[in-house]
Design a protein around this nucleic acid. Structure first.
Length: 355
DNA sequence: AACGCGGGGAG
DNA sequence: CTCCCAGCGTT
């Protein structure tokens, strides 16, 4: 299909549909500044709109500008990110803010290549920023767009495969019109989220119905081709809530990269370790009898975690060791830390029991 | 090319 | 339960 036909059969009806049904009152659209677009795009990576909205509002309240963000401490950023997941996004966001202050005079570049080089900003996010914030004709390729394009053009094969992905990028940019670029980017995402959905797509009300090859052959459900998934492994963790006479709780900062990177977590026992031996040997603490606090399962996208949390009231034996980046925190301090969801759950359970 | 990286919403 | 979401960085 040539460029002119693509406009007539794809982009134009899509833009018309957007004018009637598209989302135009999302928080990052009012106003749609480069900074707000950037923050929202990072939060929205692999995360649904409804989940992001409250996080976005809190973030803007705390960091109204890129300079505010650059001057903050990483723990502040991670605290605002607590519960949102994929915490490398928060760390990269902070790094990018500092780089923009240092290398770009505090102004987010209006250039795809420059944006793409910044931490946490890949091809699709860079395209989202230049198209939405600067109205440039550069196409995104996210989950919504992959679904719309594979159906419309009946693209077979797993979309993450190099050859298929290259084809999808080309198609995505072919469909991007030269005008109304910001609206177009929003339009194709809205169509994917509201009409061309993974299950039960609303083809009868779809603006692209006339030319959609998947609809023509009644095989919408075949696209996009699904990945073959392996069974997820299961891990077990015994976590300790160590608290002292004052009610302070001991937490350790995780290494900067990896699972829950940079977050504050509870000490983790090795399989078969005796809790009291563990804290005496590693922390020079003595403790009262461990009490079962809570046991539950936590599901990640790449493994299952079975958690068993114990609480132990402790006394310092020698001088308290600050190894493993550990610290004692009062309850009020914990509220301003970056915590993983299971950590928050265990701690709130602890506080409910020991108020 | 495959994997690591969270957590939640929808069916 | 399963699927998948405004993906990116590393290996």
């Amino acid at each position: 299909m040539d460029k002119q036909n693509l406009y007539k059969q794809f982009s134009k009806p899509l833009l018309n549909w957007f004018a009637l049904y598209g989302r135009k009152n999302l928080p990052w659209q009012l106003p749609r500044t480069p900074y707000r677009v950037w923050i929202s795009e990072i939060m929205l990576q692999q995360t649904q709109v409804q989940t992001v909205i409250p996080y976005f509002e809190r973030f803007m309240q705390q960091f109204p500008s890129i300079s505010d963000l650059a001057q903050s401490h990483e723990d502040e950023v991670l605290s605002l990110w607590s519960g949102l997941g994929y915490y490398s996004r928060a760390r990269n966001l902070h790094q990018t803010a500092k780089k923009v202050m240092q290398n770009h005079g505090g102004v987010l570049p209006d250039n795809y290549q420059l944006l793409n080089e910044l931490p946490g900003i890949g091809p699709s996010t860079a395209a989202a920023i230049v198209s939405q914030a600067f109205n440039q004709p550069v196409a995104i390729l996210d989950g919504n767009v992959k679904r719309v394009l594979t159906r419309f053009f009946s693209i077979k094969g797993y979309p993450e495969q190099a050859q298929i992905k290259k084809r999808l990028w080309e198609l995505a940019n072919s469909c991007m019109p030269q005008e109304h670029c910001a609206d177009y980017t929003q339009a194709i995402m809205d169509l994917g989220a509201m009409c061309c959905t993974p299950k039960n797509p609303n083809c009868l009300n779809c603006p692209l119905q006339n030319s959609c090859l998947a609809f023509k052959h009644e095989e919408q459900h075949l696209y996009p081709t699904k990945k073959i998934k392996k069974p997820l492994p299961t891990q077990y963790q015994q976590l300790l809530v160590l608290y002292n006479e004052q009610g302070h709780i001991y937490l350790e900062k995780r290494p900067p990269v990896g699972l829950w990177g940079g977050l504050w977590c509870l000490p983790n026992l090795n399989e078969g370790d005796s809790p009291l031996d563990f804290i005496r040997l590693n922390y020079d603490l003595s403790g009262e009898t461990p009490r079962k606090l809570i046991a539950f399962k936590h599901r990640f996208s790449h493994f299952h975690l079975e958690i068993n949390a114990l609480s132990i009231k402790t006394k310092v034996l020698g001088k308290m060791l600050y190894e493993k980046q550990g610290k004692w925190f009062a309850k009020e301090e914990i509220n301003s830390l970056g915590l993983a969801q299971p950590t928050s759950k265990i701690l709130s359970f602890h506080y409910n029991m020991f108020v």
